[in-house]
Amino acid sequence: MFDIIAVDISGRHKVKDEYLMVCASVAASVTADHIEKVNQVAIRSFRSNSAPDILYVVKMVEDTVSELKFSGTIVTEAGDFYNKPQWLIDNMFTHDFKYQESLSERRCIEIAHHVSLSSRKLLLKELGIQ
């Protein structure tokens, strides 16, 4: 069994002159093809006037993950870091980091994706945006 933290960010496009992003992190214990247990979920929102560059994405991920009680390797889609090579991104993190590989890692990111999407939707609604 492995401990991972699957992370996904939604809202990386401009709405009303700014970027309103939600980062969701899912701490889970997985085998190669199963999610054995989802241990905890943490979400955070970020506002920015410009499109997030790689360093900003790293910061969003680290900030969000720091709210979790559980540890594990951070897993994301390569697209979240503009498909840059894994070793390059890995060097920018203080935590263990890698791109998604196994079935279970992909499923966890799917969960993170739904969490970030729906919480961002709620946020926009509460703020009266859109």
């Binding site: 093809d33 590989e101 079935l103 992909r106």
Partner: peptide
């Protein structure tokens, strides 16, 4: 293995995998 996971992951539900 990575390509296999990538190809199968969202269509395989409820299936046991033996490597």
């Amino acid at each position: 293995l990575l390509v296999c996971h990538e190809t199968m992951w969202d269509q395989l539900q409820d299936v046991g995998i033996v490597t």
